[in-house]
Write a protein that binds this DNA or RNA. Sequence first.
DNA 1: AGATAATCTTTGCAGCGTTTAGATGGATTT
DNA 2: AAATCCATCTAAACGCTGCAAAGATTATCT
Lengths: 214, 214
Amino acid sequence: MSGMTKPASKSLAPEARPYHHGDLSRALVEAAQRILEKDGPAALSLRAVAREAGVSPAAPYHHFKDKGELLEAVAHEGWTALDAALTAARQKAADANERMTGLGVAYVCFARDNPAIYRVMYDCSRDKDSLPDQLKDDGAYCQVRNTIDERSGGTVSEIDLELATIAAWCAGHGLAEMIGFKQFDPLKEALGGEEAFLRAVFEHLGMFARLDQG
Amino acid sequence: MSGMTKPASKSLAPEARPYHHGDLSRALVEAAQRILEKDGPAALSLRAVAREAGVSPAAPYHHFKDKGELLEAVAHEGWTALDAALTAARQKAADANERMTGLGVAYVCFARDNPAIYRVMYDCSRDKDSLPDQLKDDGAYCQVRNTIDERSGGTVSEIDLELATIAAWCAGHGLAEMIGFKQFDPLKEALGGEEAFLRAVFEHLGMFARLDQG
DNA sequence: AGATAATCTTTGCAGCGTTTAGATGGATTT
DNA sequence: AAATCCATCTAAACGCTGCAAAGATTATCT
């Protein structure tokens, strides 16, 4: 018992973390994501997150003022991930029309593959009555608008561009919220799979109808 | 104390309801609606509903197997109300195009004016991964499909009709979920009000683009 | 080295959904 | 009319939740 007590306790029991965690906020966000993926949004209590991170139920309150603020952090990472998914889809597309449809399909697929996080993203937005500012500065929303602008050759008015972006965004969100609904199953089958169904719906939306005729 | 005790206790103290309520399920649904309108979905606990209805916290369990089943009853009435709103909008429209846009505007306005009930309606649907069957049998969904069918003169294929209905429905739902978002405020102002904004978005969707060209 | 501030734990409170056991009283049978 | 049955209600309790207050622990700064 001379001198080496502290490092020894660390190396001998690596799971017994020190009193000060080091980066608990990060650990909490990751714990929340783990719970969301495993058991869904209903299981996401602050206490469960603390449990998963291995700290006391009150510990999170030193990093987030309440549960909502932790969820906001989770949502923030969700929007970043969505942004990345849209960027990837945009680069994969050939022509302008395909690029737009691909963006829509990628959006809905993100929601389908990350339903719990997608839920949290919009729950947070609704609490604040606004989408995060994150989206405006070269984020996901901006990508959609840019894609529409490119397709029209940059000749469309600012208002029409904004309206078309909103229309596309709303359609994508609506479809994202319902993509798992059983009512669509026969149609998905008839069209040869879920992605084909998505493309068909987006094509029916004809989001450029007005831009093309004006 | 002779003979008249029972009616006397009723007429003398009308707020002291008898041990057996009479129609508690109905009273509970109405209590839930009252709470939703007054304090929003976050305040809607089963206990609060029981309190509002003047019964014990366990009383609801004799009429609904759990909280979700009560919410389903509330949602059911919500869909019926939405149905009525769409019917009214449909009858007010002149030509076929106007009828379709009017339907969309009416849909979103219903969600804007009854945000809490609208939330419950879709929360329930999501729990079951399906929209209620209610919509298919001459309900709201059916109204949209019929309107699209009428507009196209009944010449459109079954699959295209279904796809167009889904597209329109998703766009309406997406817009309904975001209509209150602050990002839209400048645009609403620029277009001269919220309803004008809604019309503009729906026109941008050009929901008949594909039907017209095929 | 000692003080300060940040971080974590313990304890506690009120509210939640739900279950169990018991009270009440209308309806049905005898 | 009396006894029975059963739907309906209440009371009490369990484990969960979000959150606040107060105390313990440790890093950091002077």
